[in-house]
Design a protein around this nucleic acid. Structure first.
Length: 574
RNA sequence: GGGACUGUAGCUCAACUGGACAGAGCGACGGUUUCCUAAACCGUAGGUUCCGGGUUCGAUUCCCGGCAGUCCCA
């Protein structure tokens, strides 16, 4: 039985007939208060027409004889401080150890969730500004999967729009034959920049010509369509190269173009429902009543915009997957846009829960990241630097003093990749998504302190310990019947913390914040390091040794599961 | 002009949704390797939680009013 249920029962026993719906038992804020605390005596004091300490005393009385608690105290204004018995703790640790998926509740079983993230624009290279949606989205994706949800990860590429007129015109007239034959995203990017510059010329000829190419594309011209398809394929190939490095996988790559045919029907429906009305040649939905302004669903030139394509997209997803919710991971600038079309979708009768997870803007040296500012650091470049820095440390640890530096092996490079990429991902995932980030190399590539490598290092030490004890592959060498016997304060703190893992995963999912999990893992690793430093393990007496080793194995299991949910690799040797 | 988000140690951030003395990392200073991986550990210094009210037994957290920064919309 959960602790909160036990304490709730005690409340009910002390005050029969009262409703104590929300009794919560939480980890103690300070070890000196015990292991857990319940603050609800303070809340229910009024209801019970009594003072909090008296309520606490009656509940404590009702808890007497319960073998879960070794000690129940009332402190301060009426806090209930609970100390659990070592037998209870040992059995809970054994439960966690035996549990599937480290005890993560399968609350999403039978439900589907669509997660829309990363979504870069085609024909452009990914840069540091793309890290956030990709890494945060991917972590939310993994977290929901771990809860048993069926997740459809969709990459809503920017693969349609005016830029393709500019690109097609530029491709035909500004690239060399060689560049056309060996088309890369870098070439496309260059082609776009050159063509867009020419489109700004005074006579407007180039611009007009770009527009015509776009119209031809939209009308299904065979040549332009083939070119467009080629641009998209090359772009996706390049994106996949980045995703492979980051360990990100999508189920579908449905860009904006996928919804072209659905949009007219959506607009028609909006008109039929009386939601969309003509205004200055455009078709708009008035949302003034909700103080959301006006949303354009068809421009005066007949073109559609994001609101329309998002509505078409939600229609398709609902019909195809019938998801319980759809999660959009995009930057915070789009908050108004999402509020607008969520509201329209609700009016159209969609009941699927639509969730916008906004993240803060990334800047560099205080300026927005853009081609114009010339501060666009490519994702590839960042990842290469991450590997370079980690490799330098890996190699410095390999070498013996005075000896010439050894050449890195393939293994060394793989390790440096795991560490470097882990550092990049963790530096983003460890903050609340909403905070703005001013990019700096040192912050993004932190290898010490509260960083990815700190956690990976803790894991490698556990593995090494287990191996020395005779285990393999991070699995315990111990027979299952050796129990947990928690004795020292450091062991106890770590043990209590490990029991919180499933709760941390649930909290991270409910808040759509991987940072909640990252924070939990860091705290856990800190407690482990303290324990590890202060308590001999392999050299202890057999019984203590076995119990401590078992705790280490459990920690390793939790840590690697948690890092896995963040998309961070856990090498066994560092 | 309207709106959203943010404001916590020198810097970067936490604080489990209202709990006890606001915690970490980095940086600074000092200590710990014949001992299970020092990418580690221990200690010291560092705070008017932007300001002012309000609600509450209790506010970094909720409400109102300011101020500052970032961003959206017009």
């Amino acid at each position: 039985m959960e602790l909160s249920e036990i304490v709730k029962a005690a409340f009910e026993k002390a005050y029969p007939g009262e409703d104590f719906g929300g009794v919560r038992v939480v980890p103690a804020t300070d070890p000196k208060f015990g292991d857990y605390q319940c603050n609800d005596a303070l809340k229910f004091a009024k209801k019970a027409k009594s003072n909090p300490r008296e309520v606490g005393a009656k509940v404590a009385e009702a808890l007497k004889g319960n073998d879960v608690f070794e000690k129940v105290e009332i402190a301060g204004p009426g806090f209930l401080n609970l100390t659990v018995s070592s037998a209870w703790l040992a059995s809970r640790l054994a439960d966690l150890d035996a549990a599937e998926k480290c005890g993560i509740p399968q609350s999403g079983e039978g439900k589907c969730v669509v997660i829309d993230y990363s979504s870069p624009n085609a024909a452009k290279q990914m840069h540091i500004g793309h890290i956030r949606s990709t890494v945060i989205g991917s972590a939310i994706d993994r977290i929901f999967r771990s809860l048993g949800y069926r997740v459809v990860a969709d990459n809503h590429l920017g693969d349609w729009g005016t830029q393709f007129g500019i690109l097609i015109k530029g491709y035909r007239e500004l690239l060399t034959q060689e560049e056309r034959d060996n088309l890369t995203v870098a070439n496309l990017e260059k082609c776009y920049v050159l063509s867009a510059a020419k489109a700004k010329e005074e006579d407007g000829l180039w611009k007009e010509s770009c527009k015509q190419e776009l119209v031809k594309l939209q009308q299904g011209d065979k040549d332009n369509l083939a070119l467009w398809k080629r641009f998209i394929d090359i772009s996706i190939g390049e994106f996949d190269r980045m995703y492979a490095k980051l360990g990100v996988k999508f189920d579908t790559y449905r860009g904006e173009s996928y919804y072209n045919d659905t949009m007219p029907g959506v607009v028609k429906k909006l008109q039929e429902m009386g939601l969309a009305v003509e205004s200055e040649g455009a078709l708009v939905v008035n949302l003034e009543e909700e103080k959301l302004g006006v949303a354009i669903v068809r421009k005066s030139d007949g073109g559609y915009n994001y609101t329309t394509s998002d509505l078409a997209c939600v229609k398709t997803r609902v019909e195809e997957y019938d998801p319980e919710r759809i999660i959009y991971v995009t930057d915070a600038r789009q908050q108004l846009h999402f509020k607008q079309w969520f509201s329209i979708a609700a009016k159209m009768g969609y009941t699927t829960k639509l969730v916008h997870v906004p993240f803060g803007l990334m800047s560099y040296q205080g300026k927005a990241i853009s081609t114009r500012e010339g501060n666009l650091i490519k994702l590839d470049e960042l990842l290469a630097e991450a590997v370079k820095r980690s490799l330098a440390i890996v190699m410095s640890r390999r070498g013996t003093e005075g000896a010439p530096a050894p050449q890195p092996t393939d293994e060394d490079v793989k390790l440096a990749e795991a560490i470097g990429y882990g550092a990049v991902k963790y530096s983003d995932l460890s903050h609340d998504p909403i905070t703005d980030i001013d990019f700096s190399w040192d912050k993004a590539l932190a290898l010490e302190g509260n960083s990815g490598p700190y956690l990976q290092y803790a894991y490698a030490r556990v593995c090494s310990l287990v191996e020395k004890a005779g285990g393999t592959d991070g699995a315990s060498p111990l027979p299952k019947d050796i129990g947990f016997a928690v004795s020292t304060p450091a062991e106890k703190r770590l043990s209590l913390q490990l029991l919180e893992f499933p709760g941390a995963v649930v909290r991270a999912a409910e808040a759509y914040k991987p940072s909640v999990l990252a924070d939990y893992l860091f705290q856990t690793a800190q407690l482990y390091s303290t324990f590890y430093q202060s308590s001999p393990i392999l050299k202890s007496e057999p019984e203590v040794r076995a119990s401590r080793l078992r705790l280490c194995v459990l920690f390793g299991k939790v840590l690697s599961a948690g890092l896995g949910l963040l998309g961070i690799d856990t090498p066994r040797h560092i």
